[in-house]
Design a protein around this nucleic acid. Structure first.
Length: 594
RNA sequence: CGGGGUGUGGCGCAGCUUGGUAGCGCGCCUGCUUUGGGAGCAGGAGGUCGGAGGUUCGAAUCCUCUCGCCCCGACCA
């Protein structure tokens, strides 16, 4: 490809409204352009990276026996009514009417459609298991798009689905995807780990998220270096010391003027924050008030709270809602109130004689005991894991890092097949619902994460496996010697024949511009061909990631690139093998370990 | 949806407080010179100042409403 013909432009200055490096650089280097909030065009450079990423995913999907297909973006709403999600899902789903006035939806995901196909195509146990996937556009009207391709409203997802006859089959399928995903992210140059996660709107029983480490990550990952346990903070359980059993003291009201926060309260009473009960208020979709009680040194983890009581759409409660329930913000507790759902953290439930609000401004109660002084609706682990907490599995110290979710795998079970009546007949002719899993990767987000992980102050620096071009040629000094252009273009032709894609900078720009743009665009090698390089023996080859430079005879350049590509790929495979993730597993083969 | 910010040629910004002919840098076009780290000189093109309404002799500037976008929080690949 000649750069003079490439549909793109680089920007010399950073776009004002891009913060994250991937956003900034993908814009500046001419990979993407926004159309609206969270809606992007992929320019040819961006599309090339997208295709490379897609190809890696495709190869690994095919390797586990998944079959590529394509399902529509526009669905009849009736199908979504059958699973109940048409009403469950809020404004993040795009809805419209066709010309006949029928309700239609834009795909946010494809469980409904794939399950509809299963019920139409699968009749017998002999047809199972099945694995299928596609790359398709999703529309999710996110409340807030952000960070360029990191969180957008329209995006391409690779979503795969497994269909098995029973839980054991689903276990096997799940492990296959775990295996494939590990291989995919390694091949994409992403350091990603699988963490236990919430099942969210997908439903189902077990889920892992694959998280790319990033300081800009929106999720907090709770990690144990001791045993390798990893979980999303939303669901991370930790080992918690149970309070010593102390005799219960009588309830006593004390004046605590101005102590409307836990810090002030603990300071005023000279007691540790852990002995104070913190009340946090939420309201659900129907306006029902929910009081969550955690220890003063803990925070409420909303996802855990949501799951503990099967609530939906929690939001912070408004002050008037709290007062309406008979509580005093700043001095609130469930003691003496009625009508609210009270969820108590298990640690609070096992701690005697806590300090809690008196529901009267300026007063607290001491000697508060759960069960005696108030009755909780539920007792559950609803506190956020903290740095330094003890690992549930091994007791080791936990640490917390930020990550970006690039993929997830869900055990759906019969959530959809049950609702839609997708069944098969077993050997005895008895009908059973098909057992499903679903497995997603956001392609554009993966691209953005790779850019986050592979860039420097000068620009992008793609891994060899997914760069838009294998190398970029800077033609320098063509005015002094027309031969350099000839040689460069001949090299491009030879490369094409060898299956190597070069981007040749034949523009009438000064060398400085060409070098700067090459570094911005970030192909793994920059090849300079100039009178000077020819004199030195051929082409000057610079490795983008290291800045390492050498001069090679023109005839040796392509071989060198190919050799480097091969050894890079071999190194990734060797590492994957060492970790227990060799290539090639069929869905019907026994699986090693995952 | 709450909070904060911002909207002025393709990009980055000034001008707004104190109303009076819309400016700067980069990029773009033409010519000449230049050519190994974002060239120089000369000439040139390009803007309903996000939109609507209002105040005023006069609005980028003041007022009201509205829309877009970005960032921070509650949600997700």
């Amino acid at each position: 490809m000649r750069m003079s013909e490439l549909f793109f432009t680089t920007l010399r200055e950073d776009p004002a409204d891009a913060e994250m490096p991937s956003h900034r650089l993908l814009l500046r280097a001419g990979y993407i352009r926004p159309l609206g909030a969270g809606i992007y065009s992929l320019l040819p450079l961006g599309m090339r990276v997208n295709m490379r990423v897609t190809q890696v995913i495709r190869e690994e999907m095919n390797a586990i026996g998944a079959q590529e297909m394509l399902m529509p973006v526009v669905h009849p709403a009736d199908l979504w009514r059958e699973t109940g999600r048409y009403d469950q899902i809020g404004p993040e789903m795009g809805r419209f009417n066709d010309r006949g006035g029928r309700d239609m939806v834009l795909a946010m995901t494809h469980e409904e459609v794939v399950t509809d196909l299963l019920r139409k195509l699968i009749n017998s146990w002999r047809q199972l298991p099945q694995q299928m996937y596609h790359f398709q556009t999703k529309w999710r009207d996110e409340p807030r798009a952000r960070g360029g391709l990191i969180r957008v409203r329209e995006f391409t997802m690779k979503d795969a689905y497994s269909a098995d006859r029973d839980e054991a089959g689903l276990d096997r399928s799940y492990k296959l995807y775990y295996h494939a995903y590990t291989r995919i992210f390694a091949r994409l140059g992403l350091e990603a780990i699988a963490v236990a996660s919430d099942v969210g709107m997908m439903g189902g029983s077990l889920a892992h998220e694959f998280m790319a480490f990033s300081t800009f990550g929106e999720d907090s990952l709770v990690l144990c270096d001791g045993c390798g346990a990893a979980a999303n903070r939303q669901v991370a359980a930790v080992r918690r010391e149970v309070g010593a059993s102390t005799p219960q003291e009588p309830l006593k009201e004390i004046a605590t003027p101005g102590a409307s926060t836990i810090d002030e309260l603990a300071a005023q009473l000279k007691v540790p924050a852990s002995t104070c009960a913190k009340a946090v208020f939420f309201a659900d979709r129907d306006g029902r008030l929910i009081v969550a009680i955690v220890r003063g040194d803990d925070e409420v983890e909303e996802t855990k709270l949501t799951n503990a009581i099967g609530a939906r759409d929690l939001r912070p409660a408004r002050e008037e809602e709290i007062r309406a329930a008979g509580m005093e913000p700043g001095y609130a507790s469930p003691v003496g109130i009625k009508g609210a759902t009270v969820v108590v953290d298990e640690l609070v439930a096992s701690t005697a004689n806590m300090v809690a609000g008196a529901n009267k401004a300026g007063y607290h109660l001491t000697g508060v005991n759960v069960g005696r002084d108030y009755t909780p609706t539920a007792v559950a682990d609803i506190a956020s894991a903290k740095v330094g907490d003890a690992c549930l599995a091994c007791g080791g110290q936990l640490r917390i890092e930020n990550g970006i979710e690039v993929g997830n795998i869900f055990k759906l079970g019969t959530r959809y097949t049950g609702a839609l009546g997708a069944t098969y007949a077993d050997e005895a002719g008895v009908s059973h619902p098909i057992v499903m899993g679903s497995y997603g990767i956001g392609v554009g987000r993966a691209v953005a994460c790779i850019a986050e992980a592979h860039h420097d102050e000068k620009g992008l620096s793609w891994p060899i496996s997914i760069s838009p071009f294998d190398a970029q040629i800077a033609i320098v000094g063509a005015n002094k010697d027309p031969k350099v252009t000839e040689i460069a273009l001949a090299l491009e032709v030879a490369a094409e024949a060898a299956g190597i894609e070069l981007l040749v900078d034949d523009r009438a720009e000064t060398p400085g511009v060409k070098f700067a743009d090459a570094e911005l665009i970030g192909a793994p090698w920059m090849i300079t061909i100039s009178p000077r390089s020819l004199e030195a023996g051929g082409a000057e080859v610079t490795r983008r990631s290291t800045g390492e430079r050498s001069v090679l005879p023109i005839g040796a350049v392509l071989d060198a690139i190919r050799a480097a590509q091969a050894s890079d790929r071999a190194a990734v495979e060797a590492e994957l093998l060492a970790r227990g993730y060799p290539p090639r597993h069929s869905a019907r083969d026994p699986h090693p370990a995952a």
